[in-house]
Amino acid sequence: MSYSDGTPGVSYSYDRQGHRNTITDAAGTRNFQYNLDHTIARLGRRNAGGFFSIYILGI
C-alpha cells in the first residue's frame, strides 16, 4: 500500500491458507505463526532498529 502524502507504505504477505504471514511498515516487521486450528500461536516483531521480540499466545 502506498500513500500520496509521504506516509510510509505497508506490505503484507499471506500463506496458502490465506493466513497473514508478515506485515511490514515503518515500525518494523511482524511475523505470524499459526496453530493447526488456525489461531495465532506466535507473533514475532522486529522493529526498525533490528530488535526482535517473540510473543507466544494461547498458553
Rank of each mutant, 00 (worst) to 15 (best):
M1V: 15
M1K: 11
S2F: 09
S2P: 10
S2I: 13
Y3H: 14
S4V: 14
D5I: 00
G6V: 04
G6K: 04
T7D: 04
P8N: 03
P8F: 00
S11V: 08
S11I: 10
Y12W: 10
Y12V: 08
S13P: 00
S13H: 02
S13D: 02
Y14S: 01
Y14D: 02
Y14F: 15
D15I: 01
R16N: 14
R16D: 08
R16H: 15
R16W: 12
R16K: 15
R16C: 11
Q17P: 04
G18L: 03
G18C: 02
G18Q: 01
G18M: 03
G18P: 06
G18R: 00
H19P: 07
H19M: 07
R20T: 00
R20Y: 04
N21T: 13
N21V: 15
N21G: 06
N21H: 10
T22Y: 04
T22V: 07
T22L: 07
I23E: 05
D25S: 06
A26S: 09
A26Y: 06
A26K: 11
A26E: 11
A27D: 08
G28L: 06
G28N: 02
T29W: 02
T29D: 04
T29L: 04
R30Y: 07
R30G: 03
R30F: 10
N31M: 13
N31W: 11
N31G: 14
F32Y: 05
F32I: 00
Q33D: 12
Q33I: 10
Q33F: 10
N35W: 12
N35Q: 09
N35A: 09
N35H: 12
L36Q: 12
L36K: 11
L36H: 13
L36T: 13
D37C: 00
D37S: 10
H38K: 13
H38N: 15
T39Y: 00
T39K: 10
I40W: 03
A41N: 05
A41M: 08
A41D: 03
A41L: 12
A41W: 05
R42H: 10
R42K: 14
R42V: 09
L43Y: 00
L43Q: 07
L43E: 07
G44S: 10
R45F: 14
R45Y: 14
R46G: 03
R46K: 14
R46H: 08
R46E: 08
N47Q: 07
N47Y: 02
N47P: 00
A48D: 13
A48E: 11
G49L: 12
F52T: 09
F52K: 05
F52I: 02
S53Q: 15
I54H: 13
I54K: 10
Y55C: 11
Y55H: 13
Y55T: 14
Y55S: 14
I56T: 15
I56R: 12
I56H: 12
I56F: 15
L57R: 07
L57P: 06
L57S: 06
L57A: 05
L57F: 08
L57D: 05
G58T: 04
G58F: 09
G58C: 07
I59M: 14
